[in-house]
Simulated assay, not measured.
Amino acid sequence: MPEHTGACHENTPATPELPVTLDMPGKVADYLHAAELDDAERVALDHGVIVRRGQGYTLRVSAAPAGHRALLDRCQPLDGTPAIPAQRRPAASTRTASTPSRRPQSDHDRSHR
C-alpha cells in the first residue's frame, strides 16, 4: 500500500541513533581536548576510557554516529601533518640511502684472495 507509507512515517517520531563505541588514537584525542567542542562532543570525550597501547594510548569513545562524524570533521586540520614532529625526526643524512663505506684492504687481506 504505497499510498499509506508516507502518512505513517510523517507521524512517527524520529528514531534516536544508538551509541557506537570507537577507538580514537591518543594524538587525535589530545588534539580534540585542546579544541573548542560542542557540549555533546566534550561529554563524549570526557567519558572516554583510556586504553594503554605500548608507548601511547587509545581513547575508547561512545557516541551517536553523528557525534563521531562531528569529531571527525574537527580533525580535518590534522590531515597532511607529519606523524612525527620535525624536531624528533632523524637528520636527512640518516634517512637517505647511501652506499656503505668500504675500508681499504691491507696487503694481508689481498694475499688471501
Rank of each mutant, 00 (worst) to 15 (best):
M24N: 03
A86C: 08
Y57V: 00
L78H: 05
A91L: 09
C75E: 01
D23H: 08
Y57R: 05
M24S: 08
Q55L: 10
I50L: 15
E17R: 15
G48M: 09
Y31E: 00
A14P: 07
C75M: 08
A14G: 13
T81A: 14
A83Q: 11
A29P: 04
L18N: 08
L45W: 05
A40C: 05
A66H: 02
E17A: 11
A86I: 07
Y31P: 01
H47C: 04
H33Q: 10
Y31N: 00
D23P: 03
K27W: 06
A63K: 02
T21P: 01
V51G: 12
A83R: 07
P90R: 01
R88W: 11
K27Y: 11
R60W: 09
P65H: 11
L37E: 04
R69Y: 13
R89E: 12
P82N: 04
G80Y: 03
P13Y: 03
D79C: 14
P77S: 00
A63C: 08
H33V: 08
R74E: 06
D23Y: 05
P82S: 11
Y57E: 13
R60V: 12
G67M: 06
C75V: 02
H33E: 07
L18S: 08
A91E: 14
R88L: 14
P19T: 00
T21I: 01
D73S: 14
P19Y: 01
E41G: 06
R69D: 11
G48T: 05
L72Y: 15
P77A: 00
D79M: 13
A40F: 06
G80D: 04
L72H: 09
L71C: 03
A86G: 04
E36L: 11
S62C: 13
Y57W: 10
T21K: 13
R88M: 13
R88D: 11
P19V: 00
V49F: 06
R53M: 14
I50E: 01
A83H: 15
L45H: 04
P77H: 01
R52E: 05
P19G: 00
D23A: 05
P90N: 07
D73N: 15
A64I: 11
T21N: 02
R69C: 10
A35H: 13
Y31W: 04
E41M: 05
H33K: 14
